[in-house]
Nucleic acid binder design. Structure first.
Length: 770
DNA sequence: CAGTGAGCGAGCTTCCGCTTGACTT
């Protein structure tokens, strides 16, 4: 295949679309993102030589680069069409360098939307590579490398191997750690919410209840009773009625971050899931690009939206808008995330894809619809016994507008503010009191982050980019700095006091609180690393660090600053701190002494060990070796109590005999277990507690595992005892000499002969390790 | 795969931001 013009874009899906818009003389290829990166050896930066970067083409990019080289050689003109932002400009430059392009035959073009007009217009208006922008990217890349690769090794030495630190991830973890500490410090307070119920006779004779809330909360039970008594036999009347028009406007179309948030709130996807499903939709040509910080829609999309809305809902529902991006540091290389074809409100595909698509369709369409019009009513109610003021507020939807299609969800749905239609009332109208209820309400601690709300916070701080939100969230979980899980809450008393028929009744109810679903919690390692970094690298950990270096990158991009000078003024003081910290800082183990062992009088402490958090009685220097016990899942150094620690030392414990052999409960490398006849059986996490589990349940676990093992074995051969055909999580497989082999789909596992198995093992591709 | 927490030393880990596959025990 030969063509005079080679166009290079970043994404293959984009290449496919664009090729259709351009003529036969054009061949459109993708670079699959960056094609070069800093070498991993020696930082990939020659510090002595004015921060000269050492770029290499990673092995998995060699193939793409070779193909592009070949095509570039025969092309008369090479069009570098990577995105119009810092990273895109750098990609263009790397291509220019690696493909050894001739400046004469190279053109740099950009477009923000994938429409024929935009592309043709771009081709008409080429420019050359903007080296200031490229240098801003180099500064960004090198700063991140320096921060990550100079701090991480300190963590390996001072805390634990394989840990990591970085401009983005370390701050993300800090947000989680700090929020958890705020929550631990938080003390819930309660006060009483007072609600009066009035009976209203409607014109047609039917009865309606009007509820109105006292304009303040009452602090104590005693004060509530005094107050309620003062209402006894009072006459209530309306003292004011106010009606005001109001409106609600739709949210802007989706960006990566808002899509992740809404998909989490409305359909319960993790941010990783959302991106994977969106990727599928994008590749199928159903939505525009899913990694974007822009809320902009193309003019043609706006026009189609107007048509679709007019057709489906009527002209009065159309109101097209151009939204402005508010996110800090947004680079707006793409459109907002929207359906490629707005006239398709549904698409084929998996259930997951359909649900996400519908969400995107609704959000996009709603963003171009009329405001919803409301009438808000506020009614004031007073009485003749005291000066207290009750307020009833209601809301009537006069015109639904965009609400016909879509309403953005909120993170905290606790506030049940169901404002309803109020009866028509006039000033000085008398009201018949039915009852007054006082309910004890507790204040809530600041909410724990979900994956999606953490992304929102990062975006707010200008930290990270659309392409990195999901990977960052998984990095901090993979490093075990944080963990996403459900946690049980507790119950507490909530008092209810009523004034009804002249009597006061008090009732104490139990209410559940504090249950957490899929929330992010810090681990001990996360807290210790955060404290360590905060102590030694306070600048990097500052929430404004990214914003302030971004300002300098902008200066470089504008040509006002030389990138090596910017890096130099960062590196010199930074590296001095690195050297000093490596030398003088203590090993950080998060050690905490909780008390004294009543038996031996030795100190009882908790700390991070090689294999995670542990409790210890006595010290290493003591003559007698210290005793150790691992902490249980869900326990942490920061919150565990002395009593809980002492419980841990009750393990291992013998809980009885089964088949005339001892049954022992312990905690090992892989968590709590039952040991019986020198075999191990795992306790079920979240169900079994090793400290309280009884013999009967342990026997159940043993039998369950035995049954499972029996079902696991499909086939074995007497001639070769080491070879087994087994049933696993991903279906049947062959196990031989500790290695597993896939069974071809053409074969039935039950019918495999020994020779078949040998053949499969022979033919299996050699394991490659990365 | 299941009681390890000492210490030595070789060799490895690690960043952020652009993009998709390859491939699952």
């Amino acid at each position: 295949m030969k063509a005079d013009n080679l166009v290079i874009v970043e994404s293959p899906a984009k290449a496919k679309t664009i090729e259709k818009f351009l003529g036969k003389d054009f061949i459109v290829k993708s670079s699959f993102g960056h094609i070069r990166d800093l070498a991993k050896k020696n930082l990939g930066i020659d510090i002595e030589n004015n921060y000269e970067p050492a770029y290499i083409v990673p092995t998995d990019k060699k193939k793409v680069v070779d193909e592009l080289k070949k095509l570039a050689k025969t092309a008369k003109t090479v069009w570098l069409a990577s995105d119009e932002d810092r990273e895109g400009e750098a990609i263009a430059w790397h291509l220019y360098e690696v493909l050894k392009l001739d400046a004469e035959k190279t053109r740099r073009i950009v477009f923000h939307e994938i429409t024929k007009d935009a592309i043709l217009n771009a081709v008409e208006n080429p420019r050359f590579i903007d080296f200031n922008l490229v240098n801003a990217q180099q500064a960004r890349r090198i700063l991140d490398r320096i921060v990550g690769f100079e701090i991480s090794p300190i963590l390996w030495r001072k805390i634990k191997p394989s840990l990591s630190a970085g401009r983005v991830q370390s701050v993300a973890v800090k947000l989680i750690v700090e929020r958890e500490r705020e929550i631990k410090k938080f003390v819930a307070e309660s006060s009483f919410r007072i609600i009066a119920h009035f009976e209203i006779q409607n014109e047609n004779g039917s009865m309606q209840i009007l509820t109105a809330e006292l304009n303040k909360r009452i602090p104590t039970e005693e004060a509530v009773i005094t107050l309620l008594k003062s209402f006894n036999e009072a006459d209530f009347k309306v003292t004011d009625v106010q009606k005001k028009p109001a409106k609600k406007s739709p949210s802007p179309p989706f960006t990566t971050s808002t899509l992740q948030q809404e998909a989490s709130r409305k359909i319960g996807y993790s941010v990783g899931q959302t991106m994977a499903v969106a990727q599928k939709l994008y590749e199928a040509g159903k939505i525009t690009y899913m990694r974007t910080d822009s809320v902009n829609l193309s003019n043609s999309a706006l026009a189609t939206a107007a048509e679709v809305i007019k057709e489906q809902y009527g002209t009065e529902y159309v109101k097209t808008r151009k939204f402005k991006t508010k996110a800090k540091g947004a680079q707006e290389a793409h459109e907002a995330i929207r359906p490629s074809y707005l006239n398709q409100s549904h698409v084929e595909g998996s259930k997951q894809e359909q649900r996400l698509y519908e969400l995107i369709w609704k959000r996009t369409v709603a963003s171009q619809m009329s405001d919803a019009l409301l009438e808000k009513t506020v009614i004031k109610i007073q009485n003749n016994k005291n000066t207290e003021l009750f307020i009833a507020s209601g809301e009537v939807l006069k015109f639904d507008g965009f609400l016909k299609v879509y309403l953005e969800s909120k993170d905290d749905e606790n506030e049940e503010e169901t404002k309803s239609l109020l009866p028509e009332l006039k000033t000085s109208q008398e009201l018949n009191l039915e009852k007054i209820c006082a309910e004890e309400k507790y204040t809530n601690h600041p909410p724990r982050y979900t994956e999606a709300s953490l992304v929102r916070k990062l975006e707010e701080l200008g930290i990270g980019r659309p392409s990195t939100y999901a990977p960052t969230i998984s990095t901090i979980q993979n490093r075990e700095y944080v963990i996403k899980e459900d946690r049980d809450g507790g119950t507490r008393d909530a008092i209810e006091i009523k004034l009804i028929g002249g009597n006061i009744k008090t009732l104490t109810k139990k209410e559940n609180f504090g249950f957490e679903k899929s929330k992010i919690f810090p681990t001990d390692i996360g807290s210790i690393v955060t404290d360590f970094l905060q102590l030694h690298f306070k600048d990097i950990m500052n929430y404004n660090f990214t914003a302030s270096v971004e300002e300098e990158f902008d200066n470089i991009a504008d040509g006002g600053k030389v990138w090596t000078e910017m890096i130099d003024s960062f590196y010199k003081p930074f590296h001095a701190v690195v050297s000093k910290t490596a030398e003088v800082s203590e090993k950080a183990k998060g050690e905490k002494i909780l008390g004294k062992d009543p038996k031996s009088g030795k100190p009882v402490l908790v700390k991070i060990g090689r294999y995670g958090p542990l409790a210890q009685i006595g010290e290493a220097e003591d003559e007698e070796k210290p005793k150790f016990a691992s902490l249980l899942k869900g326990q942490s150094i920061e919150t565990i109590t002395f009593e809980e620690v002492m419980e841990l030392f009750k393990l291992p414990r013998t809980i009885g005999k089964y088949e005339s052999m001892e049954v022992i409960i312990g905690i090992g490398r892989f968590g709590p277990y039952v040991r019986h006849n020198s075999k191990f059986y795992s306790l079920k996490k979240d169900i079994d507690d090793p400290l309280t589990i009884e013999l009967e349940r342990a026997m159940e676990l043993i039998e369950e595992k035995r049954l499972q093992d029996k079902n696991k074995l499909i086939k074995k051969f007497d001639e070769m005892p080491g070879l087994e055909v087994l049933n696993g999580r991903y279906g049947p497989y062959i196990n031989y000499e500790k290695k597993n082999y896939k069974i071809p789909k053409t074969k039935k596992p039950e019918e495999l002969s020994l020779d078949d198995c040998k053949e499969i093992i022979e033919k299996a591709p050699k394991k490659k390790k990365k």
